[in-house]
């Protein structure tokens, strides 16, 4: 499992290829990518992502470790950026590798659900006329519940 928290940009294609070629027994690789999107008014200038360095990697490791106990996962990759990002830039990616696609898809979704509300990142949107901390949604928390059944 590879967990990286970084300020620099990364290249989705390169990361995915490297990840996919690591194991010979994984027939399925699923990737998810989070991208900075503009608001409806088209006024987003940048997004600032703050994190809690001492806690971030620990939290991500524990989420990925749990995914490994739930699915036949051969490998997982999480790359999450922090700092100042512009519209269209890649914020983060998750990749999962498993023998079959069901495990890879479900594990990727699980990782995303937990990453959203259990990994210590906070997003701030800077638009041409104001700045706002992105609020967590009730649905984010609700999404975690379905995995505990």
């Amino acid at each position: 499992m590879d967990i990286r928290v970084q300020e620099e940009a990364f290249w989705l294609g390169e990361e995915t290829e490297k990840f996919a070629s690591k194991t010979s027994t994984s027939g399925a690789v699923v990737t998810f990518t989070g991208i900075v999107r503009n608001n409806a008014a088209g006024t987003l200038e940048r997004m600032e992502i703050e994190h809690y360095p001492e806690m971030t990697e620990k939290a991500l490791q524990s989420i990925a470790g749990e995914a490994k106990t739930k699915w036949a996962l051969e490998d997982a990759l999480v790359v999450h950026r922090f700092g100042s990002l512009r519209v269209g830039e890649t914020i983060m990616m998750v990749a999962t590798a498993a023998p079959h696609r069901k495990d890879a898809f479900e594990a990727a979704e699980f990782l995303m659900d937990f990453l959203k509300s259990r990994a210590p990142f906070w997003k701030k949107e800077i638009t041409s006329d104001d700045t706002n901390w992105v609020a967590a949604k009730d649905t984010d928390e609700a999404a975690l519940k379905r995995w505990t059944k």
Partner: peptide
């Protein structure tokens, strides 16, 4: 040793 206060997280 360390206490941290923050709003609900918004990763991903």
């Amino acid at each position: 040793r360390e206490v941290a206060f923050f709003p609900p997280m918004t990763g991903g």
